[in-house]
Design a protein around this nucleic acid. Structure first.
Lengths: 346, 346
DNA sequence: TTGTAGGCGTTATCAG
DNA sequence: CTGATAACGCCTACAA
């Protein structure tokens, strides 16, 4: 009645090729208005059960699939959360991403996953690309972001969770743990066990560097200043652990402990040392980090730092969703902590 | 001039709180029309360099960030690709997802990642949720999808790539490899090496089951019919490998080869066997699958099936992007093949 | 090279 | 409980 040209076909032509059915199509079929269809689908409480039924039937019959782009545009909610992670091939992050994804899904959000390969410049470009999708929230890995990025994020006024590190001044929210404390703990633990001749097999990664510095601080106080390091690229792997240890061992044979920035490296160190006829922990101790899925079950089992990596992702999701939904936030900064687990290699 | 009510403020009120700047804002500032801004940003070839410069400056000054939801709605292109993967904690899929993400990014697409936890019902729901975002393409893991799902996907007329398996009748495109052939190859190889008393440590996973059946077929032809299996849940892990072997070994001690559905399990079998004082490969051979990052570097190194998991993701991305951009597709079905790698455990 | 008109499919707002 | 109207921010098609 409102369309003077094609009274029978509604707003769009119903001829020729059929594009995907829209809300209007369902409305026309049911004789209801589009907004009622929308409500039946998104806010059923506001609609009479009988009407809902009619709508559902028409939806099923037409194969109607809502267009969230249009919906998001109108409602300014995307139900999308973006996560920026250095790399997936690094076993460290996988559990967190899995936890994040699972928990977001439980809340009805989906995950846009972006991998930076540890490049900060890349991260900046990514965030621009991401923001153009108007996600409801963003998860960042680490706390060192360019000033540019902080500004962009702040002016976008979008909920942000930084992860995998700790700082009193996050951009917005934070779910992480202290690499400094972990370093101190490792240092004190190993010194306490009587180890004095340290070697490091260490990934070239910012956060790992903090842990190492912190260990060295402890060692320094004990007068231990000579602690050679074999630096390896990310992602850490068994192979790199072997190489790292071989490198250290070629230069010097009297280590009594090798500290590794990841359990994968520790596994490699153990392998290489064993191949060289060194018994562990008899002649050499090995300390890992991350408590990866194998660490408790290798032989010997790896002493390490346990972090609840999955919980980290889950809590990041919870914090984000709470903020998105305007719930009063319990805490802006969540320290998930860590635990030193003594197993057989120390 | 076209707005009789607020001639000076353009279409939207410019008062009070400032929402994010839009194309119209940039247009107003530069004195150009919105469409010119759009072109300067998305199709610079069509715009005079001088104009582009003016636009860029205004964009920088206002902090304008395009709204892809609006853009996608109008253009019917989302530059989004969705991938459905069973789980990330399964090391098998990580490389593929990484390759997929990297290659999509290289083409200007972003990745919506969905994890099903191996549930087919879940997959169906997921696809509906995914389609409502109008992705330009979808990547599926495996080839066994409900009829419902196939129908939905086909009627959505969206490019689809199935992966990690092979079939002559994919929904649309396929990048994978043959689990049957791999099974035969493993069986023939091990029989050829003279092994006769087989044990299996096997993940409870559909595709793994196909490989096992195929191995058993080969064994059957050799008159080998008794081959006990320890079934373990996914994701496979070193721990489960140990458990699986312990279970087999408790029932019977005369195996000469243990075949595993994943290198992680193989590593566990090796560990447990070694702990039990069994020498590998002297007394017992072990065969893995997947050629994970550690497999070549353990001691002994694991004989396994190599699949270029990253390339699988990269090629899936390429196939999808090619189809999205309307390029004539070289092949609908890509078999990335596999390679049996003989190392030290067999 | 730039601009005009109209629409993409949905939801907010206000009215009944 | 249901509906009319007007955005949401951008792009396609066509025109100048």
């Amino acid at each position: 009645m409102s369309d003077p040209i094609k009274p029978k076909s509604g707003k769009r032509s119903s001829s020729a090729r059929q594009s995907a059915p829209t809300l209007d199509d369902v409305a026309r079929i049911t004789g209801l208005s589009p907004i009622t269809i929308s409500r039946a689908l998104n806010n059923p409480k506001l609609v009479r059960p009988q009407t809902i039924e009619k709508v559902m039937e028409a939806v099923a019959r037409t194969g109607y699939i809502p267009n969230m782009q249009a919906g998001s545009l109108a409602s300014r909610r995307s139900r999308l959360v973006a996560a920026i992670v250095p790399q997936l091939t690094n076993a460290m992050f996988v559990d967190t991403v899995q936890g994040l994804s699972d928990q977001l899904a439980a809340h009805g959000y989906q995950l846009l996953l972006c991998l930076t390969g540890y490049s900060q410049k890349h991260e900046e470009e990514l965030v621009s690309a991401i923001l153009s999708r108007r996600p409801d929230g963003i998860v960042l890995t680490g706390i060192n972001h360019s000033q540019e990025l902080r500004k962009t994020l702040l002016s976008a006024a979008i909920p942000v969770v930084e992860t995998w590190d700790l700082t009193p001044t996050p951009i917005d929210m934070l779910v992480g743990f202290s690499h400094e404390k972990i370093g101190s703990r490792i240092g004190e633990y190993l010194v306490g066990k009587g180890y004095r001749r340290f070697g490091f097999v260490w990934a070239d990664d910012e956060r790992a560097a903090i842990r190492r510095r912190s260990i060295l601080d402890v060692l320094g106080k004990q007068g231990i200043v000579d602690a050679p390091t074999a630096l390896v690229p990310t992602p850490a792997s068994l192979q790199l652990g072997r190489q790292g240890f071989a490198e250290l061992f070629a230069a010097r044979q009297d280590f009594d402990v090798i500290v590794c920035s990841s359990d994968a490296l520790a596994q490699g160190v153990i392998t290489e040392a064993t191949v060289c006829g060194i018994s562990i922990p008899g002649q050499l101790a090995v300390m890992g980090f991350g408590d990866l899925d194998f660490s408790a079950h290798t032989s010997p089992a790896i002493s390490t730092i346990h972090i609840d990596k999955r919980a980290l992702g889950v809590q990041a999701a919870d914090a984000l969703v709470a903020k998105i939904q305007g719930q009063p936030l319990a805490e802006r900064i969540i320290d998930v902590g860590f635990e030193l687990i003594e197993r057989e290699t120390t």
